[in-house]
């Protein structure tokens, strides 16, 4: 292993060579334009905190760029980005109480007042705020992003075999909450 490959221009202070990077700045700008809104939407809706979503979206891209991984195409890159964001959320939820995410009461993790105000017009916001964080993640990835069970397993780190059942239960729960909010129901 040569010094040049380990330390790309770090000591000389020059610009990094394009061949060593997963993508150059123009390619990244395009990728960012295509993926940033959906990533932000995921973070904002799942966390219930738009300010946190701003921070985590930026951090996700910085980690994505800093990671030494081969360029596997945009779809895989996007999935990797969502995985970083999911891990950031999980770390954030674990931090305050040093407890497992599954043990944290739902009320504690419910959307903040700021986001509740923002969601006041939306149908989904209040229902989503009553779910566990993991259920929010699963539902968003499946029904907003359209990820398959295998892709959701890759993003969340859960076992692929359990995604189907977890998703089914989460869907039942949110459908019930949506019906309670809107008893007349939408036109199918």
């Amino acid at each position: 292993m040569s010094w040049e490959s380990v330390l790309p221009n770090a000591l000389s202070g020059g610009a990094p060579r394009a061949a060593e990077l997963p993508m150059d700045s123009d390619a990244f700008a395009g990728f960012y334009e295509r993926s940033a809104r959906s990533l932000w939407a995921y973070l904002a809706r799942v966390s219930g905190d738009p300010a946190l979503a701003d921070d985590f979206a930026q951090e996700s891209y910085v980690r994505y760029l800093a990671a030494a991984r081969p360029d596997e195409g945009e779809v895989a890159g996007r999935r990797y980005l969502f995985r970083i964001a999911t891990n950031l959320l999980r770390d954030h939820w674990r931090r305050p109480r040093q407890a497992s995410i599954e043990e944290i009461p739902e009320e504690f993790l419910a959307a903040s007042a700021t986001s509740a105000q923002a969601d006041s017009q939306a149908v989904l916001g209040p229902a989503l705020a009553q779910l566990r964080p993991r259920d929010r993640q699963l539902l968003w990835l499946a029904y907003a992003e359209g990820y398959s069970h295998r892709e959701i397993a890759e993003v969340t780190g859960l076992a692929a075999a359990s995604i189907r059942l977890l998703l089914f239960r989460a869907r039942r729960k949110i459908a019930r909450l949506l019906r309670e909010q809107n008893p007349k129901g939408g036109e199918l």
């Binding site: 932000w40 939306a122 989904l124 968003w140 029904y143 869907r171 949110i174 949506l178």
Partner: peptide
């Protein structure tokens, strides 16, 4: 019901 709600929420959040 769930997919329509999520698609609508995604569009709304993405525009914000």
């Amino acid at each position: 019901a769930v997919i329509l709600a999520f698609q609508s929420a995604r569009a709304q959040a993405a525009s914000a």
